[in-house]
Lab assay of single mutants.
Amino acid sequence: HNGKLCKLKGIAPLQLGKCNITGWLLGNPECDSLLPARSWSYIVETPNSENGACYPGDLIDYEELREQLSSVSSLERFEIFPKESSWPNHTFNGVTVSCSHRGKSSFYRNLLWLTKKGDSYPKLTNSYVNNKGKEVLVLWGVHHPSSSDEQQSLYSNGNAYVSVASSNYNRRFTPEIAARPKVRDQHGRMNYYWTLLEPGDTIIFEATGNLIAPWYAFALSRGFESGIITSNASMHECNTKCQTPQGAINSNLPFQNIHPVTIGECPKYVRSTKLRMVTGLRNIPSIQYRGLFGAIAGFIEGGWTGMIDGWYGYHHQNEQGSGYAADQKSTQNAINGITNKVNSVIEKMNTQFTAVGKEFNNLEKRMENLNKKVDDGFLDIWTYNAELLVLLENERTLDFHDLNVKNLYEKVKSQLKNNAKEIGNGCFEFYHKCDNECMESVRNGTYDYPKYSEESKLNREKIDGVKLESMGVYQILAIYSTVASSLVLLVSLGAISFWMCSNGSLQCRICI
């Protein structure tokens, strides 16, 4: 991952900044910058967002509201009850120091605090018919004063009620008058409520006091790749198909172990950190130390980045220098085999997901714990399936590479015959000098055995068991695999060879 928040398929997220979902939807004055928000790819909250409900109280069923919003990608904020005409018999300019803005008392931008007009609070009834052709999110509140005197001074009615009804919602609220500790300079409380109004449905408000009335509502448009994440990451000019709280993932790998919460087309989250597919040879310690064997393909974004291909070729060293050249036929066979294998694994496992966190309130801790156990169970199954699949494929890959290298080895052996000696570690020792032209003939299969047989015969008789390297004779190393990324691999195959001279070296080696 890149540690950044990015656009998702070209669409920017909605960053709530210092506000949370509650503050944004109710219209906390400190969240005025969010009022123009219309569309987004996903919503970003920060872990310690401080601006929620400015007048103390709870947004009821907040967790369910977050779940609903996680599939919303755009909205239209509109005046559901026009301020100047909807409440002619009531005062609608209630403000509070708890919702101060720029040093002055204020109130929510989407709600109206209705109080008595003169000395009376006549029963009010108002309704709205949803003609938007889509779901409408309606929010309101109920004020709970701290004393009967406060109730009387604001609403005149000691036994007030609030009723809200639609086809799918029907509740009646009565204020709970009680002494409470002071929070944000208030002994009173406000509880906030919401409902989704279906197209064509009607919502009716009736009250004799204590109503925090809707002013603006939201017509919602769903987008199934949307979601809500909690993150401290910063926004950058970048684009992605998959976003996590820790950063964007741009990967076609089937798995990731970065974060379980994802938005967009994302690899499946697994616990494993070692889900690797081999593309090189079986481990040979001396070669492995030099980083030549054991190439791997990573299938977990965050564990290993991208696929690494092994390729086969020849390396030689003689009086004229040293050089490398790919054996294109065996390399292409290996590439085709690995590509098919990788595609097979991805096809089997690479279903892209959006995974969002589930919200539970403080009273639902047991449910949250149960949900976590269920999620953990599914996660263990996914991890096991992934590891088992790759384990089985790896064994076949190792066998496949062994065969490829063996074929190259036999190709060289059949040409050199007794003009060189096998020394048991995949290397041959020449009994004759071999210049670049000679080396090329070994690589392309045109090695002239009779041409060098007499010199080889004489050297075999002279050496008589002495280690060949100390006599200045020449080696050919018969097994060799270097490691390159897919891009470098293609470039390498396009070149005939490249040279690395070893000044004054008397050794001649050709490596497979």
Results as ranks from 00 to 15, higher is better:
residue 437 E to F: 02
residue 420 A to Q: 01
residue 446 T to Y: 06
residue 464 D to F: 11
residue 305 T to R: 01
residue 490 L to H: 00
residue 246 Q to H: 04
residue 407 N to C: 03
residue 245 P to E: 10
residue 341 K to W: 07
residue 342 V to P: 06
residue 473 V to P: 15
residue 481 S to P: 03
residue 279 T to Q: 12
residue 347 E to H: 06
residue 234 S to H: 04
residue 234 S to Q: 10
residue 313 G to E: 08
residue 252 N to D: 15
residue 247 G to W: 03
residue 345 V to I: 12
residue 421 K to D: 07
residue 365 K to Q: 07
residue 275 L to N: 05
residue 401 H to V: 06
residue 383 T to I: 06
residue 321 G to N: 12
residue 293 F to L: 14
residue 258 I to D: 00
residue 244 T to Y: 02
residue 335 I to S: 01
residue 250 N to W: 07
residue 391 L to C: 06
residue 507 Q to L: 00
residue 323 G to K: 06
residue 366 R to L: 09
residue 391 L to P: 07
residue 454 E to S: 10
residue 356 V to T: 08
residue 380 D to C: 14
residue 236 H to L: 10
residue 366 R to A: 08
residue 416 L to Y: 05
residue 477 L to H: 07
residue 287 I to T: 02
residue 422 E to G: 02
residue 421 K to V: 08
residue 395 E to A: 05
residue 406 K to Y: 04
residue 390 V to E: 08
residue 297 A to P: 02
residue 341 K to L: 07
residue 394 N to E: 07
residue 282 R to I: 07
residue 472 G to M: 04
residue 490 L to I: 13
residue 386 A to C: 09
residue 495 A to Y: 12
residue 398 L to K: 02
residue 272 S to M: 04
residue 464 D to T: 09
residue 463 I to M: 11
residue 320 Q to C: 04
residue 282 R to N: 05
residue 233 A to S: 04
residue 408 L to V: 06
residue 350 N to F: 05
residue 471 M to R: 07
residue 415 Q to F: 02
residue 478 A to E: 04
residue 455 E to Q: 12
residue 407 N to H: 11
residue 457 K to P: 01
residue 264 G to M: 02
residue 279 T to C: 06
residue 402 D to P: 05
residue 378 F to L: 15
residue 252 N to P: 02
residue 407 N to L: 00
residue 454 E to F: 13
residue 251 S to P: 06
residue 468 L to H: 02
residue 439 M to T: 13
residue 424 G to F: 10
residue 330 S to G: 01
residue 507 Q to T: 09
residue 459 N to Y: 02
residue 511 C to R: 02
residue 297 A to N: 03
residue 251 S to F: 06
residue 488 V to G: 03
residue 339 T to Y: 13
residue 476 I to H: 14
residue 332 Q to S: 11
residue 386 A to L: 10
residue 379 L to V: 09
residue 293 F to I: 11
residue 299 F to Y: 10
residue 278 V to E: 05
residue 253 L to M: 05
residue 302 G to F: 09
residue 260 P to C: 00
residue 434 C to S: 11
residue 392 L to Q: 10
residue 237 E to C: 00
residue 404 N to M: 14
residue 297 A to M: 08
residue 489 L to E: 09
residue 448 D to K: 13
residue 244 T to E: 02
residue 292 L to P: 05
residue 501 C to F: 13
residue 334 A to W: 07
residue 313 G to T: 01
